[in-house]
C-alpha cells in the first residue's frame, strides 16, 4: 500500500522554479483542477466575504435604528445640520465611480489594457473626490462643534440659528451626540473601506499597466469590482438614513 514510486514522482506543486510543462495559463494556481474552478472559488469567496461585511456594518445599523426610535427629535435635528448638496454630490460621484469600475471589469474582459488602466484611474479619481468632499464635510462639523468626544456643543440645538429648526430641550439636545457619533462611526467606517479600496486600486493600476489582467486573468478585477460596488451600496443606505430622512418639509 505504501507506494514510494508515487512519492518520488516529480510534482509541479511547490516547485515553482521548475519549467512548466503543462497546458494551463500561468495565473492558474496549482491546487485547483482547472481555471473554471479557480474562478468560481474566487468569486464565491468574495461573495462570502461581502456577507461578513454586511454583518460588520449591521451592528452599526442596528444601533442607529434603536437610537433613532428612542431619540427621534435629536436625530431629526442632527440630520438637518448635514449639507445635503455635498451629500447628493457625493452620492453621484460614488455611483459614477461604480460605473467606471464596471467599465474597468468590462475592459479587462475585452482584453483592452489601455482602457482598463484608464477606467481604474478614473475610479481612483472619483473615489478621491468622494473622500475630499467627505473631508470638507467633516471639517464643517468641526467648525460647528459637532464632533462628539472632541468639542461637542449642544448650543445649536437648544438655540438654533436656523429659523426653520425646532429648538430641543437640553436633555434631548444631548442625544444629538449619539446621532453624530453614529454619523462619524458609519461614514468613517465607510471611508475606511474606500481608503482600503483606493489602496488596492493603486496596486491594480500598477499591475494592469503591465498587462496582468488583460490576458484572461479577469478574476481580481471582477472581485475588486464586487467590493467596490458593495462599498457603494453601503453609502446608498447611509445617505438616506443620515441625510434625507425627516428633513424639514
Amino acid at each position: 500500500m505504501d507506494s514510494p514510486s508515487i512519492a518520488t514522482t516529480p510534482h509541479e506543486l511547490g516547485s515553482s522554479g521548475l519549467p512548466h510543462a503543462h497546458d494551463h495559463p500561468a495565473f492558474m494556481r496549482h491546487h485547483f483542477e482547472d481555471i473554471g474552478q479557480q474562478r468560481e472559488a474566487a468569486s464565491f469567496g468574495m461573495w462570502v466575504f461581502l456577507l461578513t461585511e454586511i454583518m460588520f456594518f449591521g451592528g452599526l445599523f442596528c444601533a442607529y435604528l434603536i437610537f433613532r426610535n428612542w431619540y427621534h427629535p435629536a436625530f431629526v435635528a442632527g440630520s438637518n445640520t448635514l449639507d445635503i448638496t455635498l451629500g447628493t454630490t457625493n452620492t453621484a460621484v460614488l455611483i459614477g465611480s461604480s460605473f467606471t469600475m464596471a467599465m474597468a471589469v468590462y475592459s479587462a474582459e475585452m482584453r483592452r489594457k489601455g482602457q482598463l488602466v484608464l477606467f481604474l484611474v478614473l475610479t481612483i479619481l472619483l473615489g478621491g473626490v468622494f473622500l475630499g468632499i467627505k473631508a470638507v464635510e467633516y471639517h464643517q462639523k468641526y467648525v460647528d462643534h459637532h464632533i462628539p468626544g472632541m468639542n461637542f456643543s449642544i448650543q445649536e440645538f437648544v438655540h438654533p440659528t436656523n429659523p426653520k429648526a425646532i429648538p430641543l430641550a437640553p436633555d434631548m439636545a444631548e442625544k444629538t451626540q449619539l446621532y453624530f457619533f453614529l454619523y462619524f462611526a458609519m461614514t468613517g467606517m465607510h471611508a475606511l473601506h474606500m481608503i482600503i479600496g483606493i489602496g488596492l486600486l493603486l496596486f491594480m493600476v500598477a499591475r494592469a499597466s503591465r498587462g496582468a489582467y488583460t490576458a484572461g486573468h479577469v478574476i481580481p478585477v471582477e472581485n475588486f469590482g464586487l467590493y467596490w460596488h458593495f462599498v457603494d451600496i453601503v453609502w446608498i443606505f447611509l445617505f438616506p438614513l443620515l441625510y434625507l430622512i425627516s428633513r424639514y418639509r
Binding site: 442596528c62 444631548e174 451626540q177
Partner: peptide, 19 residues
C-alpha cells in the same frame, strides 16, 4: 473618546452592548 453609545448617563444603552 468618551462617547456614550453604551452609557446610560449619555442616553446610550448598556443592553445594546449585551445584545
Amino acid at each position: 473618546m468618551n462617547i456614550g453609545v453604551f452609557d446610560p448617563s449619555k442616553g446610550g444603552d448598556p443592553l445594546l452592548f449585551q445584545h
